[in-house]
Design a protein around this nucleic acid. Structure first.
Lengths: 230, 230
DNA sequence: TGGTGCTGATTTGTACACAACATCGTTGGC
DNA sequence: GCCAACGATGTTGTGTACAAATCAGCACCA
């Protein structure tokens, strides 16, 4: 696969993955190859190429005669993914870190501004988008491509589940506001570390926040078990 | 994809990946979809599904009108992959380690025996196979699936290149014997650590050996640049 | 002699028809 | 009324023909 075909593949792949992460395609949703083929004005074949990759990476599961379903993750698997993600987070500052230039520093400052605006007018959707943009900005701090790739995998797998439980339909408006507050602190801390070029600190701060984020998620899940109907 | 289709997919995928890692398909080799289809008694379609995954994971590169070529890796990319691999190696003992039972301990002891036999009658092929088996045995020490998956990716990507340069046609018989010697020490050390259930030590020993292995690789590459025809 | 364009062969990428399979409603027997 | 078998419908998996792209060889000309 090369040239134009490759470009189209990447375009569709990135778009579908984003839809999954932002919960436009929530866990359990059924996709139809033919619908996607029509949307992207092609046949099923190239679509199936994309879906195959998304399935290999664990976002989807195709079942013969039924459809391709967006996966959900049980809390046990999520814990495994999170533990690894915590470890990898720290490596941003240790493996081939890129000294941030003025543009990069401005970009982090801009993130903080967006986040402050979000605190004033909370929105689940805007939060999800900001969270994702911030992640991608973080990734520009290392030039270690395998680390980038694996971090992306872990990010997309965990964040969509986290988003669903912490700030989605399951959660209240208070939990959304609370999570945005925590996120503002993370962005502020990291922006400050970037501003003085302390990339190792960036990794450590990120690591701490990812770990805390998961701890809150588990705590909330525990409450549900106690109070919930299930 | 499910049931029988899934099983066939996994079978072909695993086999082809092993061929790539063991250098049956050396870097630069061109594969033909139709040949593979014939070998596995099916059409191009399921084969393409496998090749797509191998391409996504970086082992192959399909070029329209040319063929699918086994990839090579430049020393710079290899360095990035190795750095990450060094970090992940240590995590075996830290993320959901599984306390080895008697069978597991025997398996590690058996590896040591095989390795000692290999010292007496060196063989590039047998070394490659043993190295791979040992890796898979190591992976049984953690139940963290994402860690297993990522470790596998990094292992297969680096080992085939390492094997080619350190013990393949490029290397002399002395380097092969030397590498087998180093490997015996690694296997011995790790088997000892496993025997007393010190999984954290297993990770640290492994980390050290992976790092040293890459250091030797780079040193040898440096010599080539000085002495070689290129 | 060297270079340039063409043509045929080869190989991957795409489209489409059909097979395999799962689901659900219906119908018949009891 | 209930349950089981069956068929209709919808969806993914497979096979195959064809399109698109690359490359090597060769003829042809300056």
């Amino acid at each position: 696969m090369t040239g134009e075909a490759r470009a189209r593949f990447e375009r569709i792949y990135t778009l579908l993955r984003e839809r999954i992460c932002l919960l436009d395609y929530p866990p359990g949703m059924r996709l139809r190859e033919e619908d996607l083929a029509e949307e992207f004005d092609t046949s099923r074949t190239p679509i199936r190429r994309v879906l195959a990759r998304l399935e290999d990476e664990g976002y989807l599961r195709s079942v013969h005669g039924v459809g391709t379903i967006v996966t959900d993750i049980d809390i046990a698997s999520l814990e495994q993914v999170y533990r690894l993600r915590v470890e990898l987070s720290e490596l941003i500052g240790k493996l081939s870190p890129i000294e941030p230039d003025e543009d990069a520093k401005r970009a982090f400052a801009g993130m903080k501004t967006r986040c402050e605006a979000l605190v004033r007018t909370p929105s689940q959707r805007a939060f999800a988008q900001l969270n994702m943009d911030f992640f991608h900005l973080l990734m520009t701090l290392t030039e270690n491509e395998p680390l980038q790739e694996f971090s992306e995998r872990l990010y997309y797998q965990t964040t969509r589940i986290w988003l669903k439980r912490a700030a989605g339909e399951d959660g209240t408006e208070e939990t959304l506001a609370s999570e945005i507050g925590f996120f503002l602190r993370e962005v502020s801390d990291i922006a400050a570390a970037v501003a003085c070029g302390a990339l190792e600190s960036v990794g450590q701060i990120r690591r701490a926040h990812v770990a805390m984020s998961f701890a809150r998620l588990k705590e909330r899940a525990g409450e549900e078990v106690e109070a919930g109907p299930l």
